[in-house]
Design a protein around this nucleic acid. Structure first.
Lengths: 131, 131
DNA sequence: AATATTATGTTAGCTTTTCTAACGTGAAAT
DNA sequence: ATTTCACGTTAGAAAAGCTAACATAATATT
């Protein structure tokens, strides 16, 4: 739970979509969870909900597997990756915004439809899937 | 369908998530679809799948409704909005990437986990929900 | 070589989520 | 006084996801 890494952790995607985005079977995804390589959120009804971070991890896992590394190895590697990106905060720690605040912000910017302010946005790996 | 407006049109979100993101009931969302204010994609099994653009539109609809405008009015307004952002392409028309190409690209960048290249990314309204 | 482990596939039975269709409703317009 | 509008609510069906269990081809171990 560091810095501005907030929104990429928002649980949004059901497993069906994740299967497509990561090109993995449901079985594989659940297996990686069994081995604690990912920990997707759950709905009230116990359905998995994945965040962008989760999907990133799945892509990493997939890649590492293709390189012949096994669960144990991948777990170590991903742990290290986590370390690295954790407290190396040179980044300003922005205050966390509530959903409501976000929505009101959105509404304001939305009424001028065409010019979209490039404000305080940083983009990462998977965001590439959007836009 | 112009320019680089490609990925924002990717059908990703089930209605349950959209309800949360846009703070709307399922009934409302379906009602707006009945009135052709949105046209979300469908899965093989006929479940709605919303894109980021769809969610943007829903937020616009919500806002316009709160301003006392009715379906007919909103339809007109959204039509205009579409016009504006349509062929005013000063933006370079990048070649469309396939999912496979995207994934391979991702994999390559992913192996250096820390430095994320800020390459050719532009961000819009709802992307704010992520990151 | 025989056996065990890994990373999946497959199937079954069950629960959650979403779907359409229909009827109900308060506020506003006519 | 009635319609119309923008929803709420409910019912019944179907899709999508869940866990648990057994099956299996490769690979590793003994």
């Amino acid at each position: 739970m560091g810095g501005s890494e907030i929104r990429r952790t928002m649980p949004l995607f059901p497993i069906g979509i994740v299967m497509q985005l990561a090109d993995l079977t449901a079985r594989q995804i659940r297996y990686y969870e069994e081995h604690e390589l990912i920990s997707p959120a759950r709905t009230e009804g116990n359905r998995r909900l994945f965040s962008l971070n989760d999907i990133d991890r799945l892509l990493e896992i997939k890649d590492l597997l293709e390189q012949g590394i096994n669960m144990a190895g991948i777990k170590k590697i991903l742990a290290v990756n986590h370390m690295e990106s954790a407290d190396s905060d040179l980044v300003a720690k922005k205050p966390e915004l509530s959903d409501e605040q976000l929505r009101t912000l959105l509404k304001k910017e939305m009424l001028s439809p065409g010019k979209i302010s490039r404000s305080s946005l940083r983009a990462g790996d998977l965001s590439r899937f959007f836009r």
